[in-house]
């Protein structure tokens, strides 16, 4: 197994852990973290598999895509965190209404 595949497998594991957390946990901060883990998994798969070029320089296109993806993820996370603060301010709990436990 080449390192490229090993890293890609780690990415896949992160992706699944993220999805697990997103579905299972109720606190919004946890959900937001879970989505970020999930996203990191995708980015890792993308970047890792770009190193299958043998001795040549790794493929730069997925690297650039991941940078783009990271900026998008940061932006979305910022918006999500700001929304979470508002949810907490409006309802007293940082959870979605269907997950509220009185």
């Amino acid at each position: 197994m080449t390192p490229a595949f090993l890293y890609a497998l780690v990415g896949i594991v992160l992706f699944s852990i993220g999805l697990y957390g997103l579905i299972l946990y109720k606190h919004l901060l946890r959900k937001i973290l879970a989505i970020n883990i999930l996203g990191s998994g995708v980015f890792l798969v993308m970047v890792a598999l770009a190193a299958r070029t043998g001795d040549a320089v790794p493929d730069a296109v997925p690297h650039a895509m991941v940078i783009t993806g990271i900026v998008v993820a940061v932006s979305a996370t910022a918006l999500a965190l700001a929304l979470m603060l508002r949810v907490d301010a409006e309802t007293g709990q940082a959870v979605l209404p269907e997950d509220r436990e009185e």
Partner: peptide, 19 residues
């Protein structure tokens, strides 16, 4: 995860992409 791993595994070990 297992099916994703399989999908990744089935990729060729050498690929130049757009490099």
């Amino acid at each position: 995860a297992a099916s994703l791993a399989y999908a990744v595994w089935s990729l060729p070990t050498q690929a130049l992409g757009l490099s």
